[in-house]
Computed example of a mutant assay.
Amino acid sequence: MSVVEQYARAHIVTDEDVDRLDPAAVPVVLRYDPESDPLAVRIDLPGPHAWTFDRALLEQGLRAPAGSGEVRVWPCGRVQAVVEFHSEQGVSVVQFETKTITRFLRRTYTAAAPVAS
């Protein structure tokens, strides 16, 4: 099993000071490490912001609003999805193209598939 990392660009809205960021082109990293936690994914936002949460939540949120604890995911029209993160520092809302998340999820299931002997 191998780690899956997918670099993506997303729109971010946050109540933090983001003057240094271009809201039209924010780099993010989608990460899945089946050795560390086969049920979780991680999203790294610019700066020291990283969120780890259940992979099933990400998948469910592509079809209908879903949430667990500090993370919420929901579809936004036909081609976008929103991931909302809550912390003591505030709320960050990240908007992705649905195809980006779908492609990432497919890769995670391939990486987690058992190897036939």
Rank of each mutant, 00 (worst) to 15 (best):
A40H: 01
W74N: 07
R78C: 03
F85S: 06
A25R: 14
G77C: 04
R42Y: 03
A66C: 01
V83P: 05
L30F: 11
R42T: 13
D37A: 13
E70G: 13
V73C: 12
D33V: 00
L45D: 02
V41D: 04
E84M: 07
G67H: 14
L39A: 10
H49N: 08
A64E: 15
A81I: 15
A50L: 05
V83Y: 05
W74M: 15
V73Q: 06
S92A: 14
Q89F: 09
L39E: 09
R72N: 13
A40P: 00
K99T: 06
T98L: 06
R42N: 10
P38R: 13
V29A: 05
P48N: 10
Q80L: 07
L58Q: 01
D19V: 07
R55Q: 05
Q80A: 12
V82N: 12
D33Y: 02
G69K: 06
H86D: 15
V73G: 07
A81W: 15
L30A: 06
V71T: 04
A81N: 13
D22V: 08
V73S: 07
D15C: 05
E88T: 12
D33Q: 02
V26F: 03
Q60A: 13
V94Y: 10
D15A: 06
L57V: 01
G67L: 11
R20H: 10
I101L: 15
T100M: 05
T100W: 02
Q89V: 05
F53W: 07
E70I: 13
V41I: 09
G61H: 08
